[in-house]
Amino acid sequence: MNNTRVWQKLRPYALVLPAMIGILLFVVYPILYLVKLSMFKYNLLNKDKSKFIGADNYTEIFSRGDFYNALLTTVLYTVGVVVITMALSLFIALWLNQNTRFNALVQAGIFTPHIISIVSIALVWMWLMEPNYGLLNFALKAVGLPALPWLQSSSTSLLSIIIVSVWQNVGYYSLLIVAALKNIPQTIYEAAALDNASKFKVFYKITLPMISPQLFFILVIMTIGSFKVFDTVKIMTGGGPNGSTTTLVYYIYEFRTTSIGYASATGVVLMAIITVLTFIYFRLLSNKVHYQ
C-alpha cells in the first residue's frame, strides 16, 4: 500500500530521468564547464598550470577592438541574412501558394539547397564568385555592370557570405511559410472578398497576421542561427580578408589553441547576447503574434 504510493510519487520523475540525464550531461554540464573555463588562464599542455583569473578574460574581451569588430560583423551578417531571407521567402511563398504544376516543380527545386552540405555549397559559390573566371562576374560584365571582387575584398566579402547563406536558407523557410499559408481557410479570403477588401488589405490584415506565429518562429530561429554562423566563414574566407568576415564564432575558433579561457569567455558572452536578443523579441513582438 505504502509502496504503491511512493511509486506514484516517484513515477513522473522516473519517467523523465533518461531525458534529464541527457540534458544534464550534454547541455547543462558543458555550459557550466564553459563558464568555469572562462575564468581560467588555461594551459593546454599542463592542466595543473592553469590559473584562476576571475573576470579578467571578460575585462579583456570588452577592452579589445577585434571583439567589437567581430560583434559588428556578426550583427551586420545577421541583419542582412534575416531581413533578406524573410522578405524573399515570404515573397516566394506567396507566389508558390498559387497551385500550378510549375510551382510544384519550383517548390521541390527551391528546397534542394537545404539538403546539400554547406561545404559543397560554399565551394561551388567560391568558384562562381571567382573574380577573373567566375560565372557571376561574367554575368555582371555581360549586362554591362562592373565586375566585383567578391570574396577577395573586405568591402564585398561579407555581402558575398550573406548571399550564400540566403541562397541556402530561402527554400526551407519558403516551405515553412507555404505550409502556414495553406493552413489559412479559404472561406476567410472569400469573406474578405465579400467585404470588398483590396489585395493589399487582405495581405496586411489577414494573411500576415494569420502566418505571424510562423514568421516569428522563423525570425527567432534564424537570428540565433545567424549569430552562430561559422561553417560558411571557415570555408569561404577564413575570416578575411583583413578580418572583414570574422564573425563571433569564428573569432572564438581563432583562439582555440592560443587561449582557451578567453575563447570560453567569448562563448559565454555570445550566449548572453543571444539570450537577451530572444528575450527582446518576445517582449516586443509577442503581442503582435496571433496564436489561434
Binding site: 472569400e190 490584415k205 489577414i206 496571433h290
Partner: peptide, 19 residues
C-alpha cells in the same frame, strides 16, 4: 467583383477573421 455586388454572406463555418 464579390465586394461590389451589394451582397453579404454568412458562411457555414462563419469564416470570421480569427486575428
Amino acid at each position: 467583383a464579390p465586394g461590389q455586388r451589394g451582397v453579404a454572406m454568412v458562411f457555414q463555418n462563419y469564416a470570421l477573421y480569427p486575428t
